[in-house]
């Protein structure tokens, strides 16, 4: 069974990093995974996205018709990928930048104030890590253990302070995804 997610937003929001962390987490869990970035003349402030496909068997198609989940960190991403979430799927929207909704009663739509929550965790730049935590908390694709190990592997080698911030941001997101922080998440608007 393959499951796909797209992380989309502005370049510089850490979306490719969040996708890589998820891919690494899937690897830690012994799953098959495929990570593909949008590549090209991307730059800070431009658009950036990556797709992650997780499965039990080697991954087939690198392109998907409908995403099982989407993380939209800005309005253009919500407009582009909101309609492409499969019915019954999950849409995470960065409520710090986006007030609009996808108007999709058939999906689980989670609006999270990523900037504020990242700031609460210690570094308000880690918006995509908060969203990643929420995704992992909401869906049982990859274990939180594996994600922690993945973050340690990717970030820890270089900077321990950055690792602590990433782990804190991830944990805040995780709590939101699991519905433990309802005051900041308005589900299924």
């Amino acid at each position: 069974m393959e499951r796909s997610v797209i992380f989309a937003g502005f370049g510089g929001q850490g979306l490719l990093f969040a996708g890589q962390a998820l891919a690494r987490g899937a690897l830690e869990d012994g799953l098959e995974v495929f990570w593909i970035p949008s590549y090209g003349p991307e730059m800070r402030g431009g658009t950036a996205s990556c797709t992650v496909i997780v499965g039990d068997e080697p991954i087939g198609s690198p392109v998907v018709d409908r995403f099982d989940a989407a993380v939209a960190m800005n309005l253009p991403s919500l407009e582009k990928y909101g309609p492409r979430v499969a019915s019954g799927g999950l849409l995470i929207v960065n409520a710090s930048l986006v007030e609009e909704t996808a108007r999709r009663p058939d999906i689980d739509e989670l609006h999270i104030a990523c900037t504020e929550l990242a700031g609460e965790a210690g570094d308000d730049k880690l918006v995509s890590v908060v969203a990643l935590g929420a995704l992992v908390g909401r869906l049982d694709w990859v274990t939180a253990d594996a994600m922690e190990a993945a973050l340690r592997e990717i970030v820890g080698k270089k900077r321990s302070a950055a690792l602590a911030a990433d782990l804190a941001a991830f944990e805040v997101g995780l709590a939101v995804g699991r519905g433990e922080r309802l005051e900041v998440a308005a589900a299924s608007r």
Partner: peptide, 16 residues
């Protein structure tokens, strides 16, 4: 950090 129990056991030993 919060640890999610149950699922990791399911996949234990699957690492290559």
């Amino acid at each position: 950090m919060t640890v999610m129990h149950g699922t990791s056991e399911r996949r234990a030993g699957a690492r290559r």
